[in-house]
Design a protein around this nucleic acid. Structure first.
Lengths: 153, 153
DNA sequence: ACTTAATTGGATGTTGACATCCAATTAAGC
DNA sequence: GCTTAATTGGATGTCAACATCCAATTAAGT
């Protein structure tokens, strides 16, 4: 139900959250998140245009988060690449329904609202900090998914 | 986020719920729900294969619900044409994550779970019976969307 | 200035969702 | 059995999502 692009974007942002506020190369993200490099670069371009990540060209460049992980919600990432389209007017174009959705579409929209609220209420910081047997993106429990762990190099 | 096919299937089933347990023609459903006739016939074929609707060929034939509207949930309709894919194993294929999803994918799956529960907890009968200013599929408040209203003809 | 490391943008390929059309099939009613 | 009304199945078309590749651009370091 969520697009592949959303999945990729979240993985990438998650990776960036681990090393925030540092930056790293698209290639490193691709390797760490198992996302096809060429496509990931397009996804990151989208995130850059949406103001979620900052891109820096040239030697020592790469991608980094613009916001702090505790200020960035899952929803912002999702909406940056593949916006959740709430149902605001009758999909049948029935003018008399206007802004009042019928019970069917009201329920569909409520489901979307639930997703939106769940995503809007979770920051990347919460995702990467949550104690769990499985660490996001990380093959081995108890280890950081980032090479040598976060450092200020 | 929900596919066009899901939207069409729900409209069609909603129409059928209004006239249940009677049947009606695919063409009538197409007109009443503003769904392209040729495509709707494919969608209904899917619903028939999934056991949601019964199809009857020849004169006087058409489509009808197999279950009563109060026994049929939105979820069953959705899953018949475009199943909600819960996240059961790590999308990165990280074997060590196994059945335990990482915090990221646990949250994505929880969102899916919420949708699933919302849809699973609503029957078609509830949808078409709910008092509202807008009646599903119906242009005019207070009228039935079905030509001349339900009848046992 | 040159070299190297990195993103950017454009062109292109692939696949599945959405959609249409029509001949074949089925069943009712006379 | 013929006609008519209806679904079925197959062939086909279109377009956006997903994906890849490469030349152009940018910036750091020497």
């Amino acid at each position: 139900m969520f697009s592949q692009t959303v999945e990729y974007a979240l993985r990438a942002v998650c990776h960036l959250a681990f090393i925030a506020p540092n930056s790293c190369t698209t290639e490193e993200i691709a390797t760490g998140t198992k996302v096809p490099l060429a496509y990931l670069s397009k996804v990151l371009q989208g995130l850059a245009k949406a103001g979620v990540v900052r891109s820096q060209r040239g030697i020592g460049g790469g991608m980094s988060l613009i916001k702090r992980p505790d200020e960035l919600t899952i929803l912002e990432v999702v909406n940056a690449v593949d916006p959740i389209q709430r149902i605001r007017t009758c999909p049948l174009g029935l003018s008399t329904h206007g802004v009042k959705l019928c019970p069917l579409h009201r329920r569909l929209d409520n489901a979307l609202k639930g997703v939106e609220e769940a995503f809007g209420g979770t920051t990347l910081a919460e995702v990467i900090a949550e104690p769990s047997e499985s660490i996001p993106l990380c093959e081995f429990p108890g280890k950081s998914p980032i090479k040598n762990g976060p450092s200020a190099d």
